[in-house]
Design a protein around this nucleic acid. Structure first.
Lengths: 349, 349
DNA sequence: TCGCGACCCCAAACCGCTTTGGGCACGCCG
DNA sequence: CGGCGTGCCCAAAGCGGTTTGGGGTCGCGA
């Protein structure tokens, strides 16, 4: 579409070599020439062709994100939007492109192989890791730099990851509910094939265990994180003989479905029932209108995207380096959805 | 990373020419040879290098999506996730990659120029068109195939687009509320710089006008489509001297914020107040648990993504062709959030 | 037997950039 | 004055594919 380097060179009566060097900041050209070149390039709106440059340098200047679409349900996780926005900011600053593949679970490994073998990307972000996720050994074997957003329990080889402290966050949240006197605490979790959901469940169970409570399977739901699923699960739990007095929900969306179910049952969050959600700080689901509605474990997934991007760029700058890891702590922010357990005996003050 | 064409050719004792032709289905090679080549390619896991192929053919085999992030608010529109999932499916089937740029409003034109001049993409999807959107003349001038998701009121030049019938949808929804006896109908809309919001507002106003009602500015809110904004706007409207008895909300998220405000005010949707939302059928916000909660104008944005992708591919296949346009009708599906106006005089049966 | 298409295959040019390996001119030093 | 850096610039060789323009072999008809 645009003008070519050779044409630019001709118009300046210079060789392509010199023009290339001038534009890329090499010292072998005089400052006067460099200036002429840069000026002409701007005037003629010259931009180096991505493919040609990539072919010559061996780098694609692009990062791949493979976002899985769970086969049966066809759910697109809404946190991807914010994560990708964050990562995109980082890439833009560094002059990298982002290439996205939306792909069924079962074609996943093929797509990774493809992206790497065709040289479409220089690095990859792995989303939504599962237990012993096969993508990690695969990418390690392929020798392409990658960063996992999350971790994969049970993986032996070292790898780079950025995760939030799901275990501690949910343990704290559960402990907080226990301190408020709650004993019947329910967990509305994501799919427990996914690593984050496993860790959250453990944090929850560990906190209960510390109080001598065994987690009740009837109070634990796991599934795609949709509003409908949460509403349905909560509704079922509320009809139990001994219904929960408090809920933990793994996402704002689940929290919204839960809230829906509570109101349908005539229960007021914060008074009749306590609720803590995990808040990814999605831009369109702010929980912060003055005092937050939901008490929440909170961590910005957009910031996670930014940081994952930076880690990957660092990794690519020095492929031999040891894996990078980063664990972000999550805040527990108080909202209006939690309160003392109404059925509990008053705590001795 | 992978094996190269030349290497593959050597291992077969053939020339690169023949191997290339065998793999690309040209008739100049014997079927026996073709088979040998294909077999070896699979065995050795050969994939043509994207950049080299692109350089040779002049095509990038990639489509660009520029997703704007409104400068001040930093909102990432959650419908992008589903739209992109849809488009991604189409691209994957056709062997195209998708490159995403997340970019501030103000750098937008630069980014488009860049993507085209660098030859990173062969075609573009334009998201979230505004009135007289400058991107449309720009891309037309650049001569790159593109499809707009939505339309841009006030644009003179013809261009390709796929839109839903926002005007008719909101007019019908408003008319439906009017038939139920509502006269004070509020509109919670998206940013009215955006084309879809303009059309929805017009549909709403037109329906009111047909009943001799002038839209009351106090009943129209417009802003980023976040839960918080909706809740705040609804709360304010409910404290008016003559509060609305019905609401139209431009998205599920707004509907959720609205529902929140209603419940806080002790009002039950469907009985005390009627609510119609626009439902993009986001995968994680299903409105379909048996009978839908919200009465809604409904249209799958994921399907829109699929179709936009197909239109663009068609357009690229024959760049000379006239612009393609497609208007999708929206359904009005009945849920439990609408009912007769409680304060209206009984309609004569 | 010879000529002529088919049928297969190959060498080489090209896509647009980077990068290696000089080459020329000038100034400086011995 | 000759030699030698040094500062600037260029020609040409890739990168890994596609595509153009032959070229050899074989079978068939005259």
């Amino acid at each position: 579409m645009g003008i070519t380097l050779k044409e630019l060179a001709q118009s300046l009566r210079l060789s392509p070599t010199t023009v290339s060097r001038a534009l890329n900041g090499y010292p072998e050209v005089s400052e006067a020439t460099r200036w002429r070149v840069i000026d002409a390039a701007r005037r003629l709106n010259y931009r180096p062709n991505t493919r040609a440059k990539g072919l010559a340098t061996g780098r694609a200047q692009a990062i791949g994100h493979v976002i899985p679409v769970t086969d049966r349900h066809e759910i697109v996780n809404p946190v991807f939007a914010d994560f990708i926005a964050g990562a995109g900011e980082t890439y833009a600053r560094a002059g990298y492109d982002m290439v996205l593949s939306v792909v069924d679970d079962d074609e996943e490994t093929q797509v990774y192989r493809d992206l790497v073998a065709r040289g479409t990307v220089d690095g990859l972000i792995v989303h939504a890791p599962r237990q012993r996720d096969p993508r990690i050994p695969l990418l390690t074997e392929l020798g392409v730099p990658f960063v996992v957003h999350g971790r994969a329990t049970g993986t032996q080889v070292p790898y780079s990851w950025l995760d939030i402290n799901n275990h501690r966050g949910f343990r704290r949240a559960t402990a907080f509910l226990l301190e408020l006197g709650h004993r019947r605490i329910a967990l509305l979790n994501g799919l427990e094939e996914l690593d984050f959901a496993i860790r959250r469940r453990r944090g929850y169970a560990d906190a209960l265990a510390e109080h001598g409570i065994v987690a009740d399977p009837a109070l634990m739901a796991s599934g795609e994180m949709t509003e409908t699923n949460a509403r349905r699960a909560a509704r079922a739990m509320l009809t139990l003989d001994r219904p929960p007095t408090a809920f933990l929900a793994s996402s704002m969306i689940l929290g919204i479905g839960l809230r829906h179910a509570l109101w349908e049952a005539g229960l007021e969050p914060g008074r009749d029932v306590s609720v803590i959600v995990h808040d990814d700080e999605l831009s369109y689901l702010g929980n912060d209108d003055g005092v937050p509605f939901f008490t929440a474990t909170r961590s910005s997934v957009r910031e996670a995207g930014r940081l994952c991007g930076e880690m990957l760029l660092d990794l690519m700058a020095d492929p031999g380096r040891a894996p990078l890891t980063r664990l972000m702590e999550v805040d527990l922010t108080l909202g209006r959805s939690t309160g003392p357990c109404p059925t509990a005996p008053r705590a001795s003050a």
